[in-house]
């Protein structure tokens, strides 16, 4: 009788701990994703300041500036699908890139302390986004392993947990919006 009781309680504890760890891992993924969001927003918030500073010096790049401002306004609207956002992000970064190539022609801007600060903050946030993405991928891998391996897979089936895709295009995207390329001088 006692033995059965002990076996049952061991199974129960075991089950609860697996169940809890799966939930913990799923929450970890959500948490890691919100970290990316925070970092993206941080980079995004740099744009108005960047535009303001650049505008004072680059009088002859009006078209490019307007385009960046427009894209920024579009990307800021809340009801965008992930794909749309990604696309806007791409356009935005290529415009900023175009703008930054021309920084070469404005020595005053290149010597501007405010601009230099923005430049390094931009690079910093780029690296932070990359780090947040890697953290997200690590959490996703951890979660996927947990729900695909025995005995987690039994619980995952009952809880209807599905594998999540990792952000595979990190490298490519990083290249597109890398501030190193943007500001290379």
């Amino acid at each position: 009788m006692i033995i059965i009781f002990i076996i049952l309680s061991v199974i129960l504890i075991f089950g609860v701990s697996i169940y809890n760890s799966l939930i913990g891992k799923k929450n970890q993924v959500t948490n890691a994703f919100s970290a990316i969001d925070v970092m993206l927003k941080k980079r995004f918030d740099l744009l108005p300041n960047l535009i303001e500073t650049v505008k004072q010096y680059m009088q002859y790049e009006g078209d490019l500036l307007t385009k960046v401002v427009e894209l920024r306004a579009k990307a800021g609207s809340p009801n965008l699908s992930n794909e749309e956002r990604l696309d806007l992000d791409k356009q935005l970064s290529s415009s900023v890139k175009g703008l930054m190539v021309n920084v070469e022609n404005y020595p005053d801007l290149k010597a501007n302390q405010n601009f230099l600060n923005l430049q390094s903050t931009w690079t910093e946030s780029e690296e932070q986004i990359a780090a947040a993405r890697r953290t997200y991928n690590a959490s996703v891998t951890d979660y996927n392993n947990a729900i695909m391996m025995f005995p987690g897979n039994i619980f995952a089936g009952m809880m209807n947990y599905q594998p999540i895709a990792v952000l595979a295009n990190t490298e490519e995207e990083r290249k597109n919006i890398s501030a190193k390329d943007l500001f290379n001088n």
């Binding site: 970092m39 932070q128 990359a130 780090a131 947040a132 991928n137 690590a138 891998t141 951890d142």
Partner: peptide, 24 residues
């Protein structure tokens, strides 16, 4: 902190108070 580089993981174990910062 579980990092991606297999070579690095072979030689080291990494701990941090902040997962994102560790990767930063």
């Amino acid at each position: 902190v579980k990092l991606e580089s297999p070579e690095f993981n072979k030689a080291f174990v990494t701990y941090s108070t902040d997962q994102v910062e560790a990767r930063y």
